[in-house]
Amino acid sequence: MERKPSAVLMVALILWMFGVAGTVILPLFDQEINSATASGELRNYPEDSAEAKGREIYIQNGCQTCHTQFVRALPADTNQNLGPVSQGGDYKYDLPHLLGSNRTGPDLMWVGLKYNEDWHRQHLIDPQSTSPGSIMPSFDYLTNKELDDLVAYLMSLKPTEERLAEYKKEREEQNSMNDK
């Protein structure tokens, strides 16, 4: 092999394909990530809806570079009260995905539960007015229409009532366990 570049390339290709098979092809057959949860269905926005357009604006303005949408079953997330742990099926229609990798700002997976429209609008136009000392940039350059759509999208980021109730119950149980 030390004299045959084609042999090196062949083996290199085969090893690469093993990796693709294991980490890219096999998951295609996994039910958990490929069928939508009820909360995932809520993110199947009709084309041209305000939410769908808002999602585009979210992407175009790079919100995903500072915000994840990705709640883990870990103290870092539960103690920040981020809401129900996210499941693969929540992202069935989330394309391109907005999982993110960096929390310069908080996770937004279920941020629709936290505030009302007015707060979001005010915060987007002047983040420091609602959150003194915030390093989120102002998005006052967006048009009124764009802001409306973006806020509609943010407000839509919620779990179903059942999922939320379940989550609240679990938390209460945990809290009472901790108290004892």
Partner: peptide, 17 residues
């Protein structure tokens, strides 16, 4: 292309590949 991928997490795996 995202429109040919069946789910967001699947794309996440491909993207991180």
């Amino acid at each position: 292309p995202a429109q040919w991928i069946p789910s967001g997490v699947q794309q996440g795996l491909m993207g991180w590949f």
